[in-house]
């Protein structure tokens, strides 16, 4: 069935915290590693030791600079399939190889029926489909479907490879259809957002925005304002301990404190 299921029992997906992601690429390489031998095998690479090394990756990490000057920031931005609720990548597929699971909402490509027409990659707004040139079929993030239900794994290991690897804990996996799930709560609390909402694909994956820069003094400025001294004026003699010098004041204080 290439028609999308009207409703899926679960909406499994990822929540990616852009405030925490340091751009380490662990999610990209662990994804590559798992999938190169799993459901998506082979995940081909080309000219790997040559001038133009490139290959199919199901997860890629971008870097952006946003804003200018003091307000500027650098944001690391991992990008993979968002397992959209109404994705065009499924409906355009002429073979039905591209499908969305009614069970959990995972969007998959059936490597046995895909003809490699690449139309789904044109239909995806997020660049999430990666054609495997050697295999001749389309590849994409499987949400590690062969891990998350894998009964040969310990229950706590039944998470996507990228989530398990991510050293900062910037990646979260769960049911975004269940408002009570941890991921849904996190999204609500941190005001998670959709990418390109105007495209109308209703991504399941959510991104958590970088937080407002915390200035530890903001809440406490009053407490510390008093403590912030006037500039030490340059006329004070360097090593003088005469009364009135900064050092003398300091030592007088030190003495007071220590004799308490």
């Amino acid at each position: 069935m290439t028609a999308r299921p009207q409703i899926t029992r679960k909406k499994l997906g990822l929540v990616i915290d852009l405030d925490t992601c340091v751009g380490c690429q662990a999610c990209a390489t662990s994804c590559k590693e798992w999938n190169a031998g799993g459901y998506s095998a082979p995940l081909s690479d080309h000219d790997v030791y040559g001038a133009d090394p490139h290959g199919a990756w199901l997860n890629r990490v971008h870097n952006y600079e946003v804003g200018e000057g003091e307000a500027g920031r650098t944001v690391h931005f991992p990008r993979s399939c968002l397992h959209c609720e109404t994705p065009a990548c499924v409906t355009v597929c002429p073979t039905g190889a591209s499908y969305k699971r009614a069970e959990d909402g995972i969007v998959l490509v059936d490597p046995d029926t895909c003809i490699g027409c690449k139309l789904c990659s044109w239909a995806c707004a997020y660049g999430a489909r990666e054609y495997d040139y050697s295999h001749g079929v389309m590849k994409k993030c499987t949400l590690c479907v062969d891990r998350i239900y894998n009964e040969t794994f310990e229950p706590e290991d039944r998470v996507p490879a990228c989530v398990k690897a991510c050293p900062t804990g910037a990646r979260h996996f769960g049911d975004l259809g269940d408002p009570e799930s941890d991921v849904s709560k996190l999204v609500a609390q941190r005001e998670g957002f959709d990418l390109l909402p105007e495209m109308g694909f209703k991504p399941t994956n959510k991104y958590l925005p970088p937080r407002a820069k915390r200035d530890a003094t903001a809440a406490k400025r009053d407490a510390t304002a008093a403590a912030i001294s006037k500039p030490v004026v340059a006329s004070i003699k360097p090593t003088s301990t005469e009364a009135g010098s900064v050092s003398a004041k300091f030592f007088a204080w030190a003495d007071r404190v220590l004799s308490d």
């Binding site: 804003g67 200018e68 307000a71 931005f77 957002f193 990418l195 390109l196 105007e198 991104y207 970088p210």
Partner: peptide, 11 residues
């Protein structure tokens, strides 16, 4: 809009 980072400025 693609990155959702517009609130922070030009991407």
């Amino acid at each position: 809009s693609a990155t959702g980072l517009g609130a922070y400025g030009k991407v």
